[in-house]
Write a protein that binds this DNA or RNA. Structure first.
Lengths: 333, 333
DNA sequence: TTTTAAAATAAAAGCGTTTACATTTTTCGC
DNA sequence: GCGAAAAATGTAAACGCTTTTATTTTAAAA
């Protein structure tokens, strides 16, 4: 456990002042090429790495972004995490990972973020109280909600246009000749699930369908499995099932298959997210693709703008996505 | 973007010295209860949070652990990540997440870790050069390898006893009356895949089987799918397939099913990891369970010991795991 | 009381940087 | 060459804490 080598050590070896060492490592600082090379060589020889902690203290910029997730087990989120990592890396940021254990993001988790002076926080699939948002804001920490929003707060958010996607899915199912629809929702306190459901119902109502059977599948495989079971027990007539995310759709399909229904001959199933597995040949799930790359691009853009103070007002960006047709929906016309 | 409130602010409000504020927030410091309460109240009122960056600078302890992963898309790893988060949280550590994009951990990724003075690094499913390990060690950063090891280096590691697991899987397949085995491996440069394969072959050889067909499935679904296809093309006689991880097993099963083979009637398939999906009714995969909780427990224990200097020598801990029998293997006796 | 030890507090140094400011060196027009 | 402006370098002051050291207050002993 050797002592860490500091800028002072480099300075001594190179025979310059410590501030010159600092300048040698900063992009647009006033320093001669000759001296810079001298210093860099000395640094190389000693294996010097600038200390980001010390830098953060003086510059008041940690260059750390917190990412808080909850449902890491849903394959959608690892993908998101990976992509956020790439984008933020490119921008020279590190990621502090928080896996919120509870539905709602906890006080102490917010505190951790603040204590480490993260410059921004990306909230993914976790519930945020307005109090938490305020606390973050009060500490000058930018917040971007990813794939959810809270109406009363003033936070940046980028979300798939779940309402319109829901509408289009409803339309698609109707267009392909389905008449007995069912819906498996996520938790009732998520904007994601709510908007998808509202859009879906909106279309149905326009076609004179006022009520359809629904079950909460809590965004999990087991939930989807159980929800499908309940649904079919009381509504054997169902010919199409819209699941508010893919993972529930897999659960539903697995239940239906074991119960002897054929997909899509007997029942069509449609999901939401287009996770990698949707393409697996066991499922070949027709689903709604969230344009993850674009969403992440925008989220990072908002974050950076906010951090750099180029933002007047928090923005909410909606992106559309599109239907991916595979083999889990049958054309019944 | 309010200015951050510092210990000095609290001190002023409470009418004490700044050092007393510091003491009020530290566990076993010499301070009267009266004053502590006074200070804590003032801090509460101002919404003061100690600045971990500043603390880290003076104490030379960042309380950050780096976790580097590569194949986050393999569902095994999100689970691991989540559990590491819980354990390390309990110990008061934060996680800096690195998603290595390449097979081999990159120079600049190691640098990032060093710049942020992480106290330790957990390496999961990523390849580490000895040079990288040395660089970390030279900077006093503890390294624990999770689920892999490198023989030439002196790093802590906790791994499933892949060799013996491979042996037992071979035995199990033989015991259940299989005579034409095939193997789908991971990348040839991973100790994980190699040891599983060696153990497997070891058993087979003891039973007079010297050679079996093998394909590299590179630890991915697509790889497993393709590998199964290649294997069956040339070796139609195969009656059992051992896949070096679950995700490849899923790919293999999906190929086999679409090709008209019945699992397990025509071909038995066995995986490795016991990810959540293995229990899904589409797969009901018989597989080897890695004792993740125990592995993580040990990894964190090693890490902490190393950080606290209670370690003479790097340790390599092997854990066993056990076979989980589901429905993808048929008893052919 | 007075003396002395112990406990609580304050003052100040220092962690490894960046950066404003002061000083020195270089460059360049005349 | 000279002088002035520009560029390069050095000096020193922060940043927000912890911790050592010095000082004050309190408690205990006499």
């Amino acid at each position: 456990m050797n002592k860490k080598v500091t800028a002072m050590d480099v300075a001594r070896l190179a025979g310059v002042s410590q501030s010159s060492v600092s300048r040698a490592f900063s992009k647009n600082a006033s320093i001669s090429n000759k001296k810079r090379k001298l210093i860099l060589d000395a640094a190389e020889k000693l294996g010097y790495q600038p200390n980001a902690i010390a830098r953060g203290l003086i510059t008041n910029q940690s260059r750390i972004i917190g990412i808080v997730m909850r449902d890491v087990q849903n394959p959608f989120y690892p993908e998101v995490l990976e992509k956020f990592y790439s984008r933020l890396s490119e921008e020279g940021y590190q990621i502090m990972f928080i896996n919120s254990q509870n539905d709602e993001i906890q006080e102490h988790e917010v505190s951790q973020l603040i204590e480490y002076s993260v410059e921004g926080v990306i909230i993914t699939d976790a519930l945020l109280t307005s109090a938490a948002v305020q606390k973050l804001n009060r500490n000058g920490i930018s917040v971007v909600l990813f794939n959810r929003y809270i109406s009363d707060s003033m936070s940046n958010a980028v979300i798939c246009n779940n309402f319109s996607a829901g509408q289009k899915i409803g339309q698609y199912l109707l267009d392909t000749g389905h008449r007995h629809l069912g819906f498996i929702s996520g938790p009732a306190n998520t904007s994601t699930s709510l908007d998808r459901s509202r859009g879906f119902m909106d279309t149905l109502q326009k076609h004179g369908i006022e009520f359809i059977p629904m079950e909460d599948g809590s965004f999990t495989y087991q939930g989807g499995f159980a929800a499908a079971k309940n649904l079919m027990k009381h509504h054997d007539e169902i010919d199409a099932l819209f699941c508010a995310n893919d993972i529930m759709a897999f659960g539903a399909i697995d239940y239906l298959t074991t119960a002897g229904y054929r997909i899509p001959e007997d029942i069509s199933v449609i999901g939401f997210d287009n996770v990698k597995m949707a393409d697996w040949s066991s499922y070949t799930l027709t689903t709604w693709q969230q344009p993850v790359d674009e969403m992440i691009h925008q989220a990072v853009k908002l974050m950076l703008e906010d951090i750099n103070g180029q933002q007047e007002e928090p923005e909410m960006n909606f992106v559309d996505g599109c239907l991916i047709e595979r083999a889990s929906v049958k054309d019944r016309r």
